[in-house]
Design a protein around this nucleic acid. Structure first.
Ligand SMILES: [Mn+2]
Ligand SMILES: [Mn+2]
Ligand SMILES: [Zn+2]
Ligand SMILES: [Zn+2]
Lengths: 139, 139
DNA sequence: CATTTAATTGAGATTTAGTCTCAGTTTAAA
DNA sequence: TTTAAACTGAGACTAAATCTCAATTAAATG
């Protein structure tokens, strides 16, 4: 389970493996698709969790650093994340009419980006590509 | 001057060409590189402008819609923009160590994106690609 | 197991980017 | 001109994210 990876990451970094962090982490692992910290907080609270909003906002960057989730930074005013393993990297098309999000992955595009970075002597760690426009349904 | 383009855009959309909008627009055109709305407000205020923060926040989306500026949405907590004409579209590599921003433009990459969108029946209007990592200087 | 200490927590205050309200003003078309 | 709709500024408001600090807890050490 990815639980092991999280535990490992924490100990390597000298952070503690607390029940709050575990709870937050495993709740996130249940989520299919995007989530935002506050909606996660509400969900957990509804389920009876005592974990605070502060702990959620503190744990999320740890998970990002540990490579377990990634920021997808939607068009909205607040940050969105999604878990990384289980779903390989992909980019987004976002319809500005209906809000639909089309996930896509193009190996050619990824390759091309890598070669561009190489040319600039830039060591890419992650990237975010969002294409805004109108989806097929919205003409 | 791009001023004409802005005026045209406003009249086509049925919006009014006010002195506030003109002032904001021409101030932006003076800026080389990125800016954020609040720093623009301070700059203008310092120069003696009476334009309100609200008008700045109201005018910026108009300029984006009109294709005169674009959101670059930096890693920060608030939005950044930059003027579009004079400088053709480009994407960004951002060094997470020193913060350096490398602007690049790859016609191949743009072409590839277009063809991917066509495949999804998605009509792309704009996009933002940010590659995070470490620049040459930062190893 | 008991001790110790630095990390972590929750509650709520604080910050701040961005939006909204509304009465008064301005634009531009007629 | 006149007129109607668009626009403005001041400041209230919203909400995402961060911070504060006293109390708690993980986990290393003996
Ligand atoms: Mn990609
Ligand atoms: Mn591009
Ligand atoms: Zn759509
Ligand atoms: Zn650097």
């Amino acid at each position: 389970m990815p639980n092991k990876r999280f535990k490992k990451f924490l100990s390597v970094k000298g952070f503690k493996f607390t029940k709050e962090r575990e709870e937050i982490f495993s709740e996130i692992m249940l989520i299919e698709g995007h989530f935002d910290p506050d909606e996660l907080f509400i969900t957990m609270k509804t389920k009876g969790s005592k974990v605070s909003r502060a702990s959620i906002y503190r744990t999320i960057p740890l998970l990002v650093d540990g490579g377990l989730i990634e920021k997808v930074e939607m068009t909205d005013r607040h940050a969105h994340y999604e878990k990384k393993p289980g779903k390989r990297h992909h980019d987004h098309m976002i319809c500005s009419i209906c809000g639909k999000v089309i996930e896509f992955y193009s190996p050619e595009l990824e390759k091309l980006q890598e070669s561009i970075c190489r040319k600039e002597k830039f060591k890419a760690l992650r990237h975010s590509l969002e294409i805004m426009g109108r989806c097929g349904d919205c003409g």
